[in-house]
Every structure is written in C-alpha cells, then in structure tokens.
Write a protein that binds this DNA or RNA. Structure first.
Lengths: 223, 223
DNA sequence: TCAAAAGTGTTAACTTTACACCCATGG
DNA sequence: CCATGGGTGTAAAGTTAACACTTTTGA
C-alpha cells in the first residue's frame, strides 16, 4: 500500500573522469518515455530511507551506499495529476565497469542509463531543478563530507581523487597544490601498493581514514 | 481542506544579545500542553512556502521574512497517530521590543513565547532534533548567506553584527579581527549616522549592500 | 625508445590569529 | 569625572596560489 509521497534519487557515480547520474526512462504516464530521476512512492509502512535504498537496488543492484537528503518539492503544479510531494535524495555509488550495466527490475520504467551530469537529456517533472540543486550542494558539502571518497573504490590514487574533486567542482585544480593539501590533512593512509594493469608508471594507492576525516571536519565552520 | 503533510517552522530572532526561537504551547492532542515548533497542515491548494508564511503571520504578526527549507522528517513513529510527513523551515525575523509580544491567533495553541535557543523546554514530537539541525545548518550557511543581516534591523552597529555571529556560532570572536574582516569584504555601507539613545559613545551605523554580498559569495566553495 | 602519467619544491601573496589601550559620550 | 562601550594597528604564523621539470613504467 502506497503513501501519498514519493522519493526521487539523484544517483551519482564517477566513470571515465566524469561525474555521471543514473536516469530512468519512464514507462508510465505522465511523462511516458521521458528520462527522469529514479523515484517512486514510499510504502505506507516503509521508512523513507528504506524506500531510497529499495529504488537504488531496483536500479543498480547495489546496496549499502552513502546517501543524504537534499530537499523536498511540493509545488502545486509539479505533477500534472495534482500536488505530489517528493523528497529528493542523492546517493553516491562506486561505479566500476562491472556495475555500469544497469538492470531495472520494475515495470514502471523501460531502462536506466548513466549520463554525464552536465549533459543530460530533458527531464520529466522538476527533475532538472533537483539535479542542479544537487550539484550545487555537493560542491559545498565536498568541503566537509567524505563525498569524493564515496565515489571511489576503497583504494585509489591521488590522481583519481583529484579527478573527482574536479568533476564535482567543475574546474581544474593544480596537481601539486592538490596533493600537498590532501596529504597535509592527514586523513589519507598511504598504502604499500600501487596500481596494476596500466601501461605507464603505476601510481601509489591510498585509503581514507574515515575517523580522522570526520574528526578533522566535524567543527569546521567559518571564523 | 487540509493536505496530509505539515510544515514546522524554526522562527528565530535576536534579542538582548541572544538567539531566540519562538515556541508554541499546544492546545491539542497529541502533546497537549507541550511546547512545540509552530507548524500546521498545509492546505490542499496552498503552496508550501505560503503555509510557512501563514504560520509565521499567525504567530508573530509579521510578513515578508527571510525563510529557507531545512529538511523533511517522515519517520513512521514521529507522530503517535501514524506517519505524518513534515517539512521543516527556518525563518529569520527582526525582533525588536515592539514585536516581542506574541499573539497567536489560532485555537490549536495556547500561547507563543520566545526562548533562548540553547535553553528550550522539552519539545513535542521530534522538534528538538529539528531545532538542533537548524542551528547546525545556520552555522554553515552563515558563511555564504546573509543570515546575520536578516536578524538585524536595516541599520546596525558592528557590535550588534558581531553579537549575532557569536550567537549563531556559539563562541566569542575577537573584536578587531571581526571588524577588519567584515569591512574588508566590502559589502557593508558605512552610514553618516550613529546610534541614538545610548548612555555612552554612540556607535556608527551600517547597512548591508545585498548585491555586493551575494556577488561576493555566489561562487564560494572549497579550493 | 617512446608515450603516458607519476611525482616533486619554492616563492610570493594573502589570510588568519593574537593581543591592549585610548577615545567619546551621557549621566 | 566616571562608567560604558567604541574604535583602532601590528607582527608572526599559517595558508593558498602560481609555476615546470624529471622519473618510472610497459608496450
């Protein structure tokens, strides 16, 4: 039994040097055949976060991902059938090649597909607005939440980390300054391992020390 | 005709060197006689922001105040009668002595009263959680939204401004450093006026140049 | 041996922090 | 003339920004 409100998910991954968002092609009116953020009604006896997890699983096959609430939208005209309140979330997944193939298992959508966040097709409802808000928030939260790390595998190189920062901030950064700053924070653990399978000099791998990260940023506000 | 969701408002003002929140004493079950954030069901044909404005007006007699959405709460157990989704907002008002007297005009509450934000009575529902989240958000947003200025009259002294910053950040700041920094930003207009009615040297008055403020902070993110 | 990306240091500009006294005013 | 808060500068420490070349590796 469905409640009267929905959740919509901005599911983000990082692939080929780009930030990507998972969109679903709708198979239902209104906006049939349009691309939209994955979302659906929350069940009556279901916690909102569990609905987000369910939608995430239905669309990507993934569980246990980082998520955070974004904003709620309840405009009287946002849905042609009358006001439907939606609570927007974002979720960050570790996209590798094995996870690129999506397999939507519901019948209210035809397919799901990853798009570069700054090059999406026209979206249903107010979903473009939701996506834009999400990107703006990520830029701010990047400074005090482990957002970049949730988009990367457990072990990563500094170049990969820099590319994620650049993708979210939508600008290029200086390599030396970036590495110096990251290493000075003290929450990166340098591993005794290097990349494998590359045709050039293999880069050192690092891990996030989440305890130190959170400690570092828990009280970071202006002044 | 009411919709099935509510808005709850963290209404904040600044008075006597302290950040204060307006609380309402409930006159209805559940939580009859408890203090709570002002809030109510949104009407079916009413925009959510208009509901917030309505509640604000009912509780304070004020219109045209700064407000912003905070977060939505939809826990299955947050309301004893079953899940009721609420969208929490905060609103910032310019509290002067003429506005301190509150006059709730609804019958679902007995009275409204201003409390220091860090010394509130036990609150109904999950309202303490909402208030705490609000204070945390304000600390972050203070750095890039004109929050402090919305709590002050149009013309204010630098000491008043510093007190607001201190109230929100919940710590004391160095007077010289604060003034230097604020004046360097360049968004304060120094007026040719000074305070009146004080028994000591009158302080210079300033105004916010909102255009310059927004320009200054529109692109402020880490790196 | 070449192509590709890894890795590395210094300097100048700017920002932040710490700190204490004299001044102007009204009562 | 005194109590109260208004107003002001400097130096040291820390952070950010700009900038280019050598090294390692696998194919």
């Amino acid at each position: 039994m469905y409640s009267n409100f929905t959740v919509d998910c901005v599911i983000l991954g990082f692939h080929e040097g780009e930030l990507k968002v998972l969109l679903a092609e709708r198979n239902e009116y209104p906006f049939k055949d349009w691309w939209a953020l994955p979302g659906f009604f929350v069940d009556n006896d279901e916690e909102m976060e569990d609905a987000v997890k369910r939608i995430l699983y239905e669309n990507t096959g993934l569980k246990d991902v980082f998520m955070d609430q974004l904003h709620s939208f309840a405009g009287l005209k946002r849905h042609p059938k009358g006001r439907i309140l939606t609570v927007a979330y974002y979720a960050l997944v570790q996209l590798d090649n094995t996870k690129l193939k999506t397999k939507p298992v519901t019948n209210y959508m035809k397919q799901a597909k990853w798009f570069p966040v700054r090059n999406v097709p026209e979206l249903a409802f107010d979903h473009k607005q939701i996506l834009d808000l999400c990107l703006e928030r990520l830029q701010r939260r990047l400074a005090y939440k482990p957002i970049a790390f949730e988009l990367l595998p457990e072990k990563f190189t500094l170049t990969q980390l820099q590319l994620v920062y650049e993708g979210i901030l939508n600008k290029t950064l200086d390599k030396r300054n970036f590495r110096k700053k990251m290493q000075n924070y003290g929450f990166l653990k340098e591993l005794d391992e290097v990349q494998t399978g590359v045709a050039y000099r293999a880069a050192r791998l690092y891990k996030l020390d989440k305890r130190k990260f959170l400690k570092h940023f828990q009280n970071t506000v202006a002044f």
